[in-house]
């Protein structure tokens, strides 16, 4: 029984990681909490649902969903956020506006009702874990989270581009003093955030449902994960996702009404004891070379 609950918690954690990693990176390099992430999540959710309904396989639908959300994010960054490069307040409000516009657009096109996500074959089956059936789909969530984590680590730690991104996350001014053009890096990271949010949207459909409020419903948990992990830290996001996912599954199992409360409490405790998050940088170490 408990093994089943723990595995469910890990699968939730994997989903939260995919959902939050992009948000964390975008904050790291742009210094803005990207509300629009919830909109890209929604675009991915509906894109995958639409493709699955038209005969596409799940993996293809999920990858396409990520791509569509990434392109949407890139357009938003280029058209709406780039002109506000030196205006973080304006960027924050713009991302909030993008979230609301995308949510309303989905509501207008597909209607407010919850859609059924057609799952077939192996992904619709279960395996016995701890004496109870465990959905194979949730194993796919765990695998997806693991693969995304490894890909992000390989990108950030193993490539020249990743090194530049990490430099830009730490200090844009120092990065520019090293001859790095930060503006294209910001676009790239923002698009990557969109891809991850869209992919997370595709993963969400089968267990969370397809409806216009899904983006805003998951937004609070995303923020909790990112704040606990430390803004800009992929490793911190992974640790925080595990804490939140396992807490939600275990508390949800024994006291379902307390699950969200426990997560919010965890965030408050971390904010009191370590305001920069578990693996985040101390606030005083942010870009001290900026004009």
């Amino acid at each position: 029984m408990i093994a089943n609950v723990v595995l469910a918690g890990i699968s939730l954690a994997a989903f939260y990681f995919v959902l939050s990693a992009g948000l964390s990176l975008v904050f790291g390099i742009m210094g803005v909490l990207n509300f629009a992430s919830a909109g890209y999540f929604l675009v991915g959710l509906y894109a995958a649902w639409y493709m699955l309904g038209h005969g596409s396989g799940f993996l293809v639908a999920a990858l396409a969903a990520g791509l569509i959300s990434g392109v949407t994010a890139l357009i938003v960054e280029f058209v709406m956020l780039r002109p506000l490069y030196r205006n973080p307040g304006g960027q924050l409000l713009t991302t909030l506006g993008v979230m609301l516009i995308l949510t309303e657009a989905v509501n207008w096109v597909f209607g407010p009702q919850i859609q059924q996500e057609p799952m077939q074959g192996l992904l619709a089956s279960t395996l016995p874990v701890g004496g109870l059936p465990f959905p194979v789909y949730r194993l796919l969530l765990i695998a997806s989270g693991l693969v995304i984590y490894l890909l992000l680590v390989a990108l950030l730690r193993g490539t020249s581009l990743g090194l530049k991104v990490r430099a830009g996350v730490e200090s844009q001014t120092l990065a520019e003093l090293s001859g790095i053009r930060v503006l294209p890096l910001r676009s790239l990271v923002y698009a990557l955030g969109g891809i991850l949010a869209g992919f997370a949207g595709a993963l969400y459909g089968p267990f969370g449902g397809v409806y216009p409020g899904a983006g805003t419903d998951t937004l609070l948990l995303t923020f909790i994960v990112v704040v606990i992990g430390g803004l800009g830290s992929v490793g911190g996001t992974l640790v925080a996702s595990l804490i939140i996912g396992l807490a939600e599954a275990l508390v949800g199992f024994y006291a379902p009404n307390l699950a969200l409360t426990v997560n919010v409490l965890a965030m408050i405790i971390v904010l009191i004891l370590r305001p920069q998050g578990l693996l985040g940088r101390a606030p005083g170490r942010r870009d001290t070379h900026a004009a």
Binding site: S160, K164, R166, E170, S171, L174, A175, R281
Partner: peptide, 14 residues
Amino acid sequence: GVFQELSVLENLRL
């Protein structure tokens, strides 16, 4: 003006 979160080697690479 070095990147505090990066290693010495990574700082040099950049």
